[in-house]
Computed example of a mutant assay.
Amino acid sequence: MNAPTSTPVLLDGHGRRIDYLRLSVTDRCDLRCSYCMPKGFKGFEEPANWLTFDEIERVVAAFARLGVRRLRLTGGEPLLRRDLPLLAARLGALPGVDDLSLSTNATRLDRHAAALRAAGVRRINVSLDSLQAERIAAIAGRDVLGEVLAGLDAACAQGFAPIKLNMVVQAGVNDDEIEAMVAFCIERGFILRLIETMPVGDSGRASRHVDLQQVIAALAQRFDLAPSARELGGGPARYWQSRDGGFTLGAITPISQHFCATCNRVRLSVDGTLYLCLGQDDKLELRPLLRGGIDDAGLEAALRQAIERKPERHEFREKPGKIVRFMSATGG
């Protein structure tokens, strides 16, 4: 991956620098996590409406020319997109892209870890809400614990670093398992990130929200954690590290302590919709522009204009029923 000779800056209307694009390569998933996708949902985008690899590369290249240097591949489950490592290699080679990462449920990671590493992906986030097979089945729709653990083993063998485990905490579902997950991450050298559920779609609103502030305070005391300023990917998580350096805890708290003032990211869905805020409906439809013959200068101008109207903040607390789309359709 190559850095540009000069660093352009993409600012929104509130003075925030936007340097991070989360790119959904598919809206499909092989799991049905209760907080993400409605049970029995079948309304996926038709592949004809997906951005092609060439279209994705054009958009990412335009963002990179405007100063976006961090790129995360998401879904749905991104490893369901055929030839994903080939796309990753193309995107990672673009001038300006200097951080290429992946979010995955890891059910297929053991098959793709080597190719992803060779393509330039260096960091991965793995969704893992429990270490108990029956709980995984209840949350995700089927027991895939063995597949996820095999994927983590493959990621370790390929040298991905850091490896972060994302645990969405739900009251009465898995909140009694947090310390077990901490112990697992200490043993394996993983970073644990606890995530509050968000009221995105009916599935998100039906989840059992846990305010993580007290959880974090208890863990900080139990494991001798201190706030950390360490750079770990440029996302919204706040981090704490044990004083011996053996464990790092992250927390993503959009409800109890939102991070909108420092938001640096936008999301591009597989159908070419650029979502400017996870908790608002502001968006730019890029697919009609791309297939209508827009040139690179026009594309960059459209992106700049969209970023200028990025909302200041979400309204998850004030208007929890506002967002009707669900997470897997938005992009993780």
Rank of each mutant, 00 (worst) to 15 (best):
E77N: 14
F223N: 11
R243Y: 03
A48K: 14
R90C: 06
E300L: 10
G159W: 09
Q221A: 13
T5Q: 06
L91Q: 02
L94I: 14
V126D: 05
G298E: 11
E46R: 09
V266D: 05
Q221N: 10
D153L: 02
P85H: 12
A329S: 11
L225V: 11
E55T: 11
D176K: 06
S228K: 06
E177S: 08
E57K: 10
S34M: 01
R313G: 04
A106S: 09
A138V: 04
A119K: 00
A114C: 00
A113S: 07
G201T: 13
D175A: 10
F63I: 13
A119M: 08
N125L: 06
V25N: 02
G292C: 04
Q221K: 12
A137R: 14
D12W: 01
R17Y: 05
G172N: 12
P227F: 06
Q221S: 11
Q214N: 13
G272D: 02
L10V: 04
V60R: 07
A64M: 01
D175I: 05
I307V: 15
D19Q: 03
G272E: 01
R222W: 01
L289C: 10
P38E: 04
C29V: 07
P4S: 09
A171H: 11
V97W: 02
A119T: 06
L131Y: 10
R267C: 04
R188E: 07
A137W: 08
L289D: 12
I252K: 11
A218V: 00
D143S: 03
T253W: 08
A64G: 07
L23P: 00
R65L: 09
L212R: 05
R135S: 06
T273V: 15
G279W: 05
A302V: 11
L79S: 03
I294K: 04
L116C: 01
R317I: 07
E77Y: 14
